[in-house]
């Protein structure tokens, strides 16, 4: 190949690559699509945090909205610490949050009254130009779990009882848990729990693997993780009420609400009303234990509830 031809080839390849790259899709935001007849010209950008339940929930809402004629896009975030600021700065339009934890994140103090928590949350979101729609019946609270053997060996059934053996135990949780008031920090302040060490493990099966192999003795779980029942794990009782009621609640930007039309709010609320704690626990199990895909699981659920 002569030199000129070589240069041309390189240039052509580069141009092609840049063109393809411009078509997008190189970073992990997938695109949904809207269905047929009542196609509106509005795109909903749904943010979700990187764990199974969020994948499922965002899909359920997203698919229902697509059915109602909206175009849907998804954006993945590593944690609330990244997702909330992005919502506030307008990078996307809607996030399925958890009322109590989000309230704490925004500086509030949740009580055990779920209705009160929602009101307080709305107040905190107001100055950010965001509002909360209806809460779903499902509540996914943080849960501290141990294996049956572990719980028996250290005679621990409640979080208060955990304080004593804690310095001998290793705690596994997603990295963001370490400094959160609703998580490890809160456990230290409210219960005086100081573990031997903290291992940052992404939410999901990897963390449970560590628990079952005794590489960690205590794990942060979500109350809706299907694995808890499957592996007979013990959820320690939150006797001092550290973990707030955490109903799933869609939080949406006000500027989006005004251009989205009435259909949007009613569709979202309709979806919220259908999701119970039992439902989501079962769906989580399908994804985490059976390795089913979140979108498929969401689709089946949404169909069964007449949402799509």
């Amino acid at each position: 190949m002569t030199l000129t031809r070589r240069w041309t080839t390189v240039a052509a390849l580069l141009a092609l690559s840049l063109a393809l790259a411009a078509c997008g899709g190189l970073s992990s935001s997938d695109n949904g699509s809207s269905s047929g007849s009542n196609s509106k010209n509005v795109t909903v950008r749904i943010g979700w945090v990187d764990f199974s339940e969020q994948a499922i929930l965002s899909q359920i809402y997203g698919q229902a909205l697509a059915k109602a004629g909206y175009k849907v896009e998804y954006q993945k975030y590593a944690s609330r610490e990244l997702a909330d600021p992005a919502l506030f700065s307008g990078k996307y339009d809607m996030l399925i949050e958890y009322a109590g934890s989000d309230l704490t994140f925004l500086g509030g103090k949740p009580t055990s009254d779920a209705q009160q928590v929602l009101t307080d949350l709305k107040a905190k979101l107001q100055p950010k130009g965001v509002t909360a729609l209806d809460q779903a019946p499902m509540s996914d609270q943080q849960a501290i779990t141990m294996t049956q053997q572990g719980s028996t060996k250290y005679s621990v059934k409640t979080l208060s009882e955990l304080a004593k053996p804690a310095p001998q135990l290793v705690f596994g949780a997603p990295p963001e848990c370490k400094d959160r008031q609703t998580c490890y920090k809160g456990m230290q302040d409210t219960y005086g729990i100081h573990f031997k060490s903290f291992k940052g493990l992404a939410q999901g099966s990897l963390k449970y693997q560590a628990l079952l192999n005794n590489q960690i003795q205590v794990a942060l779980s979500f109350s809706t993780d299907g694995i808890i029942a499957k592996q007979n794990l013990v959820t320690l009782q939150d006797d001092k009420g550290l973990f707030p009621p955490d109903h799933a609640v869609p939080v949406v930007r006000n500027d989006f609400l005004s251009k989205a039309g009435n259909d949007f709010q009613s569709t979202v609320n309709k979806v919220s009303a259908t999701i119970t704690t039992n439902d989501i626990t079962g769906l989580n199990a399908k994804v985490d234990i059976d390795n089913d895909d979140p979108d498929q699981v969401a689709k089946d659920f949404a169909s069964s509830k007449g949402l799509v």
Binding site: G25, L26, S27, S28, D50, S52, K76, A202, Q203, G204, S205, L206, Y208, Q209, V287, D288, N291
Partner: peptide, 20 residues
């Protein structure tokens, strides 16, 4: 850091503890 490529299969599988 969120780029979608063959490595995404690896990170997904790792967090779900699914080797395929």
């Amino acid at each position: 850091i969120g780029m979608d490529n063959l490595g995404t299969f690896i990170t997904d599988g790792l967090s779900r503890f699914f080797m395929t």
